[in-house]
Design a protein around this nucleic acid. Structure first.
Lengths: 182, 182
DNA sequence: TATTTTCGTCAGGTAGCCCTGATTAATTTT
DNA sequence: AAAATTAATCAGGGCTACCTGACGAAAATA
């Protein structure tokens, strides 16, 4: 049995971290660059699409919508918005004239960097050992969450797996190093 | 100098965790209870107000809007929505008939529990030492983020401090144990 | 008492994430 | 060649977090 006081302390800190991170998103991004995708929305809508394209450039809207678990209409909406911001480009496929190939522009690539790269910045306060510990802990927590998801709704399993593959940069050895029981 | 590969690995894991957490919110909360405040929106709008009230019940809208850094109109909107969901109650102040005192209902208190209490669940996979490590790491990261915020926009300092006081459950010894340099 | 300040309200707007339904155009199937 | 499937579009709608502007009512101040 673990001290419940320490557990509460951790929950507090986690909440505090979430809140400060949230405020940081607001404050930092407001001044820097306007009209970008907010870090907090990274895994939704426009952010999702940017991330998927940064992992594999040149996808059709159909591809995107199935991979990201969105309706084609929603996908089209986000693509339209990103296009207006010049973060992506659309060009008709030569092979199949129904499909549009969506590509990240240089500006879009920059945006992904700003969006996804904002986390790593504050990680610099951690030393070697803390980085190791944190990595390990996150792996464990992610594993637990994945379990919860698959438990609650098994139909999500493949979709979840595909989304992780779509997003997370080359982690080819996934699956063997997250042992978890509850 | 720390290995940049390990740093990258950590950034990856952090992104992965964020995404899985996000999906978990979707999947788990959708089935459980409808019409509640989503965990992901905990520090925004309606969630913010619920949290503030759970820390100090019976505030005026003015109080809430200044503490939470919202316009009175936005505050009123959120209060209206929460009221319609029976999470809070409004009653005219006897002392000053302009102000309305906003209070959490029992149902609202439950909602806060559901909203804020969902994090601790998955923390159960961590053992004693990991809990200690994680707590320490989060403290450091939060400190760094606070520095960044105060650096980018000093006007936020007091507001940030007040919001933390408003939200975080009784951490009276705050401020002395987060030493950070970059 | 008359004026100004304060608290809260309504109205209207921007932008975000998502959806269903109906339709066009291109490609496959039959 | 005709019919069915597929990729994407427009139209419209619901919900979220915010905002500005205009305004009434109550309280504080002159």
């Amino acid at each position: 049995m673990v001290s419940s006081i320490e557990r509460q302390e951790l929950a507090d800190r986690l909440a505090e971290f979430g809140m400060v991170e949230h405020i940081a998103d607001d404050v930092l991004h407001r001044s820097h660059h306007d009209r970008g995708v907010e870090h907090r929305l990274m895994f939704q809508g426009q952010g999702k699409i940017l991330l998927a394209l940064s992992h594999e450039n040149g996808l059709s809207q159909k591809e995107l919508s199935t991979r990201l678990n969105l309706t084609p209409q929603s996908t089209a909406e986000f693509i339209g918005k990103l296009s207006r911001k010049h973060f992506i480009s659309k060009e008709r496929s030569e092979v199949d004239k129904r499909v549009y190939i969506v590509k990240l522009t240089d500006e879009g690539r920059e945006e992904v960097q700003k969006m996804a790269g904002s986390a790593p910045e504050f990680l610099n306060v951690l030393n070697d050992e803390e980085i190791k510990q944190f990595t390990h802990i996150l792996g464990k927590l992610t594993g637990a969450l994945r379990d919860e998801i698959e438990n609650a709704d098994p139909s999500w399993t493949k979709r979840l797996h595909q989304m992780l593959l779509t997003f997370v940069t080359n982690r080819e050895h996934y699956g063997e190093n997250h042992s978890h029981r509850r």
